[in-house]
Amino acid sequence: MGDNPPDYELADRMSLTRPDQVKAIGHPLRTTILQLLHERAATVTELAIAVERPKSTVAHHVEVLTRSGLVRVVRTRRVRAVEERFHGRTARMFYVAAEPTTGGAEMPRDFNDFEVAARESAPAFEEGRLWGFIRHARLTDEQARQFWKQMADLVETFDRLPRSGETTYGFAVGIYPADHPALPPPR
């Protein structure tokens, strides 16, 4: 593990295959909690202070994440007569599986990381501090899968950066089929 955050053991990647898991990460407060737990394990009290929300609200959201298998208690410590529980993520990276779910349940259609990124990045855009690219290329399905793996590796590199500095930066990547013009095949 070394200097890489967080301060507890966890899997590198976890595929979200159940609707309850996708729904769990679809709530902005739960997403923020997961991001905070990427730095280090934390108690509900610490999380409540960080997000400036009531402890009971944060405890509810931590419980939802725990039931979904995205968060677990990684250690405890005794403080006076109370046992403090430190929560941590179960994986560095969560991703929504492309394969269909079992049992006939469908994944929620309203979950979109880019919608979250667009909302979060609006102030940076207004301040001239938003950097981004968009490109289009015709690819085979296999090329798209390989490129996605490279992007996942880049996200993992970003996730392992030491937490320092005064500004929290967002990082969004994706690949998607697009209705975009293409040149005809060469003659």
Rank of each mutant, 00 (worst) to 15 (best):
G2R: 09
E52I: 12
V173L: 03
E127H: 13
D3L: 02
A137D: 00
G88N: 01
F114V: 13
I33Y: 07
V44Q: 03
E166D: 06
K23I: 07
L139A: 03
T57P: 05
T66C: 12
L37W: 01
A105L: 11
A42T: 07
A137N: 01
E63R: 15
P162M: 09
E115H: 10
A98L: 12
G26S: 12
R119H: 12
I25F: 00
D113V: 15
I134C: 15
G103T: 02
D141A: 13
L37T: 00
W148V: 13
R40S: 05
Y176F: 11
T31C: 14
H87G: 02
R119T: 11
A118R: 03
Y8K: 15
E39W: 10
K23E: 10
K149R: 14
L130Y: 08
V82S: 14
A81Q: 15
F86Q: 13
G69R: 10
D3H: 06
G174K: 02
A182H: 14
L34N: 02
A118F: 02
E126C: 13
R72W: 06
P162T: 10
T32A: 05
A144I: 04
A172W: 01
L10R: 09
T57I: 09
F147Y: 14
F86D: 13
Y95H: 05
L47R: 00
T167M: 02
P186G: 08
G128N: 09
P19A: 00
V64A: 02
S164K: 09
M151P: 05
I25A: 00
A98V: 12
A59I: 09
R160A: 13
L10F: 08
Q35C: 12
H87Q: 05
D110H: 11
D20R: 05
S121L: 13
E120M: 00
A97K: 11
T90F: 03
M107R: 14
S56L: 10
H61C: 00
H180S: 11
Q150L: 10
E156T: 03
G165C: 01
G88C: 02
G26D: 09
E156H: 08
F94P: 11
A59N: 10
V73N: 03
D7L: 05
E156P: 04
L34V: 02
D179S: 09
G2F: 08
F114E: 12
D159N: 07
T76C: 14
F111E: 04
R160E: 14
L130D: 05
F133S: 15
L65K: 09
R13V: 08
L29N: 09
V155D: 04
I25C: 00
T168I: 01
T17K: 05
I25T: 00
